[in-house]
Design a protein around this nucleic acid. Sequence first.
DNA 1: TTAGTATATTCAAACATTCGAATATATTAA
DNA 2: TTAATATATTCGAATGTTTGAATATACTAA
Lengths: 88, 88
Amino acid sequence: MELNMFQEHARLFKALSHPTRLHLIGLIRDRNPCVKVLEEELGVAQPNISQHLSILRNLGIVEAKREGNQVCYRIKNPLVLKLLDAIS
Amino acid sequence: MELNMFQEHARLFKALSHPTRLHLIGLIRDRNPCVKVLEEELGVAQPNISQHLSILRNLGIVEAKREGNQVCYRIKNPLVLKLLDAIS
DNA sequence: TTAGTATATTCAAACATTCGAATATATTAA
DNA sequence: TTAATATATTCGAATGTTTGAATATACTAA
């Protein structure tokens, strides 16, 4: 197993190592929601949600699509779903 | 999905979010090695290895068994193996 | 007992993450 | 245009993680 593999996997696990991000991923998986919906569901301040979404975007875990006034999110890397299914 | 579930899963993912710990888990899975062997394989200082093993022990991911002079490690929570298989 | 080997713990400095506050940007409606 | 709504970014303080250095503990051999 390559050393860089460990780094890459560690980065992915780190992205999943915060409860808010796991909650976000769960909602995004189910409904491809826009940020407003995520904000209401989580009861977390909007800038904080955007910060967490930014982390997930930068790792290629989710992707954003603007739809008029709002931005909707969906899962980009299905590997993440495999991991979530494996853990629950 | 309960809020505490996200916390619990996040804790597990955090334990897996460091390359050294992933390397350790891989070796432990294959050979149930003692710390000396882990030290040689990883080329990382012994106290640092013990620190990472302590994190994995505290989360119930691995367990230690003293064998005379040395301490051997093995996987305790097989869920971790499911995760590692899912990611690779 | 003492010396040697194997492992664990403690501490502090360096570094990274998290979050609220403030602000910026994008789009729509008036 | 201006105002309103939705989302993103920046910054800094608080907090958490990582690591090397020093030290402690456990066992074995002499």
